[in-house]
Computed example of a mutant assay.
Amino acid sequence: MTGPPGRTRDDGGSPVSRGGLGRWRDQLVALGWLVLVWILLWGDVNWANLVGGLLVGTAVLFFYPLPAVTFGGRLRPGALLVFAGRFVVELVRASIHIARIAVQPGYRPRGAIIAVQLRVRTDLNLALTAEAVSLVPGTLIIEVDRRSATLFVHVLDTHRPSDLSAARKRTLAVERRLIRAVGSAAELRLVESRPVEKGTDS
C-alpha cells in the first residue's frame, strides 16, 4: 500500500520514510545480512571472512541491486540474541540428525515439499525467513511466491503427516523470532495474534 509521494506504509498502515537516509539504512541492513550469510556459509568467524563478506556483499548490492525494500521495523537486541541462540541450537540438532541418517545402514529418508504461507507479507521478511530456513540442514527453500508470501520448503526425512506439520510450525516459528528481533510494532502484533503451537517457539 502506498501513501504520499516518497513514502510507503508498513503492514500496520504506518507511513515509513523512503528518503535518502532511509535508503542508505536499508542498504546497510541488507549488507549486514549478506555478510552474516557469507560467514555462516564458511562456518568460521574471522577477519578474512568478515572482510570477504563485506566485499562480496557490496559487489552483490552494486551489480545486482535488490528491489527497494524499506525497513520499517526496530532492532531489539534481546530478541536478536534469542533468535541467534535458537538458530544455533536448531543448526546443531539438524546436523546431528543428518549425520545419523548418513551413517545408518539401509535407512532411506523420505523427502517432501510443503507450502508455508507467512503472516508478514513483506519482501524483507520473505528474504530473511527463507535464508534462515535454508541454512538449517535438511530444509531448503525451492520456490517463493512473492504475491501470496508463500515459501515452498523441501524437508528431508518425513514419514508421517505429523512430520510435515512440525516442519511447517518450525518455519512459522523462525518467522516469529525474526519479527520479534527486527519487525515493526504492527508486524509483531500480526504474528503474536496467530500463535505457533507451544514447543515450537520461544
Rank of each mutant, 00 (worst) to 15 (best):
89 V>Q: 13
3 G>F: 04
122 T>H: 07
40 L>H: 08
26 D>W: 04
10 D>K: 00
55 L>A: 15
65 P>K: 08
27 Q>K: 10
151 L>D: 00
107 Y>C: 10
85 G>R: 09
58 T>L: 15
184 S>C: 03
56 V>D: 06
46 N>W: 05
200 T>S: 08
171 T>S: 06
135 L>H: 04
128 L>G: 04
35 V>F: 10
28 L>H: 08
157 D>C: 00
143 E>H: 00
195 P>D: 05
19 G>D: 15
71 F>Y: 15
196 V>E: 05
144 V>T: 02
160 R>C: 01
71 F>I: 06
160 R>H: 03
55 L>D: 06
102 A>M: 12
140 L>K: 05
39 I>C: 09
29 V>W: 13
11 D>F: 04
95 S>H: 05
145 D>S: 01
156 L>Y: 01
132 A>G: 00
170 R>N: 08
29 V>M: 14
84 A>Q: 05
86 R>Q: 15
150 T>K: 05
3 G>K: 06
39 I>Q: 07
84 A>P: 07
202 S>D: 14
88 V>Y: 08
188 L>R: 15
24 W>H: 05
1 M>A: 06
149 A>C: 02
6 G>T: 04
36 L>V: 12
124 L>C: 06
148 S>G: 03
12 G>H: 04
123 D>L: 11
59 A>D: 00
46 N>I: 03
51 V>H: 04
175 E>C: 00
9 R>T: 10
111 G>P: 04
20 G>S: 08
176 R>H: 05
27 Q>G: 14
17 S>D: 14
32 G>E: 04
41 L>T: 11
59 A>Q: 06
38 W>G: 05
138 G>A: 01
142 I>T: 13
95 S>T: 13
11 D>G: 13
67 P>F: 02
181 A>S: 15
91 L>W: 12
21 L>S: 06
166 A>T: 13
33 W>L: 14
161 P>V: 08
194 R>C: 01
81 L>G: 12
89 V>A: 15
170 R>H: 07
124 L>W: 07
9 R>Q: 04
101 I>M: 13
133 V>P: 08
198 K>R: 10
94 A>I: 07
182 V>L: 15
33 W>F: 14
4 P>Q: 11
22 G>P: 06
109 P>G: 13
73 G>P: 10
173 A>D: 03
64 Y>R: 14
1 M>N: 03
64 Y>L: 14
179 I>P: 02
113 I>E: 02
125 N>W: 00
121 R>F: 07
37 V>H: 12
133 V>W: 07
13 G>R: 03
43 G>M: 07
113 I>R: 00
147 R>L: 03
122 T>N: 09
83 F>E: 07
83 F>L: 15
